[in-house]
């Protein structure tokens, strides 16, 4: 490993490296931890920058391109900066039937952003998400790690006024 590559691994914190190495122990081969490693980095840094991605690639013994191919395949690996909390708004069929489009418009106007954008105060990023598995309480969304069900315009006001 070259000195430059060593430096890039240092772009990961000891804590991140420790967590990634732990995942590797119950997998078969270092590359197998690719998705876990990306998720660990994202947990600590909100998103996976080019620099982090290169560092993870080096740590796992794979090329940048191979790892980026994996990172960009998955919906929930963010390769661009996101806000403090990501809003995953279900846009699948049961939520659509139960008025999900109105809820989407309400959130957009409430936060003054379009789908895929982040609020100017860096608090929220709004993303569409495939069926969240809360179909009996549609429409539904996840904010950060909190699930909100049976959404109405009034509920949206309450949630984001808090």
């Amino acid at each position: 490993m070259s000195a430059a590559e060593q430096d890039l691994i240092q772009a990961l914190s000891d804590e991140e490296i420790g967590e990634i190495e732990k995942e590797i122990t119950h997998l078969n081969g270092r590359k197998s931890a690719a998705i876990d490693a990306l998720k660990i980095v994202q947990k600590h840094r909100r998103y996976v920058s080019d620099e982090s991605l290169q560092a993870v690639a080096n740590l796992l013994g794979m090329s940048f391109a191979e790892l980026d191919g994996i990172a960009t395949f998955y919906n929930l690996i963010f390769r661009k900066p996101v806000g403090e909390k990501v809003i995953l708004l279900c846009d699948s069929v049961s939520c659509w039937i139960m008025g999900g489009v109105d809820i989407r418009e309400k959130i957009k106007s409430k936060l003054q952003i379009e789908m895929g954008e982040t609020t100017p105060d860096d608090k929220y990023t709004l993303l569409p998400m495939s069926c969240l598995g809360d179909c009996d309480h549609a429409p539904a969304m996840i904010v950060g790690e909190d699930v909100y069900r049976d959404l109405t315009n009034e509920r949206i006001d309450e949630i984001f006024d808090e």
């Binding site: 997998l27 078969n28 590359k31 197998s32 931890a33 690719a34 998705i35 876990d36 990306l38 998720k39 191919g69 994996i70 395949f73 998955y74 919906n75 929930l76 690996i77 495939s130």
Partner: peptide, 25 residues
């Protein structure tokens, strides 16, 4: 426990196995 990074196709069993191996699903 392996927590996925989100893709419907992971529900197909061989795609799921590729994903568990750290690959594209």
């Amino acid at each position: 426990v392996h927590v996925s990074a989100g893709r419907y196709i992971c529900g197909e069993e061989t795609a799921l196995l590729n994903s568990l191996e750290g690959k594209r699903a």
